[in-house]
Design a binder for these strands. Sequence first.
DNA 1: TAGATTGTTAATCGATTAACAATC
DNA 2: TAGATTGTTAATCGATTAACAATC
Lengths: 219, 219
Amino acid sequence: MPRKKPGGFKHILIERLMHYYHFMGQLEKGNTSAYFSSRHLAAVVDMDETQVRKDLAAIGVRGLPRVGFRVEEVQRRIREVFGFDEKREAVIVGAGHLGGALAAYSGFATYGLAFVAVFDGDSAKVGTSVGGLAVRPMNKLKPFVERRRIRLAALAVPGEAAQGVADLLALAGIQAVWNFAPVNIVVPEEVMVRHEHISVGLAELAYHLGSPKQQSSKP
Amino acid sequence: MPRKKPGGFKHILIERLMHYYHFMGQLEKGNTSAYFSSRHLAAVVDMDETQVRKDLAAIGVRGLPRVGFRVEEVQRRIREVFGFDEKREAVIVGAGHLGGALAAYSGFATYGLAFVAVFDGDSAKVGTSVGGLAVRPMNKLKPFVERRRIRLAALAVPGEAAQGVADLLALAGIQAVWNFAPVNIVVPEEVMVRHEHISVGLAELAYHLGSPKQQSSKP
DNA sequence: TAGATTGTTAATCGATTAACAATC
DNA sequence: TAGATTGTTAATCGATTAACAATC
């Protein structure tokens, strides 16, 4: 997974920025003109304060000595970096439970994402509605994506079907695939894939819980 | 998020092991007596071959000079480390779209996980069925968890409700919370939380896609 | 056997943390 | 002003990669 990026932000920085972003929402409830010190935020997110300053410097946010960083400015800059205030349309492939959950979840709007269509290969599902979106047949995918200039697709089909659909998505001109299928997919070089490996989270929990029999946790 | 672990496996190692595990499934289809070299696997997962050897050594797998590592042995050992062959029961709180998707997904069985109950605070949902599981009222959570000695709970409620439910889970004696709600929750020291931050994946994709207007990607 | 591949030590690289002068 | 907090350089730490003797 750790592929060398020549420039741009590192995966880990993006993750940390999002971490700050989420905690800052809770930080100074409502009071957007509030300031916070790197030490304060670092304590909240359990990290080093220098790290916080470095990360904020990386996205071009300047703090004020003796005062700190302005909540509003940091939030705005993070939203800007990730384009959360822009409107990005995307499609879902797979009208099953997960596809439905994605379609129904209203929280994506906060991040500038709007799912505008659901596609499914099962003709029995075509015409039904999931999360307020009509399910369309797969042969409408390419024309739809081209017409609306859609660049992002969420892949929410069973593992067996994932690679085939990924091929179709690439063919349709999709530039980024958000892969929720529990398998690795291969795509052309120019297409980026983000694989949400749910089993990694499970492995983490399972490991730290230890055996179901024993009640104690790992050293 | 990066909290110091005194001992045990690092988060990053767990992630890499799961990565190997997934690719090994595709590696030598069916032929479990097959061997692979660290170089071979490293090429497939786009990593350094020494890294692969180190990681496998870390979980106590030995390779054979000139031959490599046995697919079957590595897979078995990884399953052992994470307890995938044991039976672990868990509950879901939240009978919405996501809770339903989790309940319906049959793939967890491969990892030794079985969701055995769904709870929801909405009395209108109680008594209905999601993913083949009856939805139960929240006041049954504690007795159920205690009786079945359940240690893991998936939290699939709206953000506003997450902290309240997390408190109930801690009270019920849950030891690990798999948090799918889009907010950070605070829990007692002894409870571990794995937060599946979906917005991190979205941020990553959004960043690399760049602005919706421009067609080119970041440097 | 000869040679490919391991296990492991040593070297490198990058990321984290400490320190501190600049500054408001 | 005095002092808290920044920005940034230097030091440390850990993780990745290279090298190579051991080995089957």
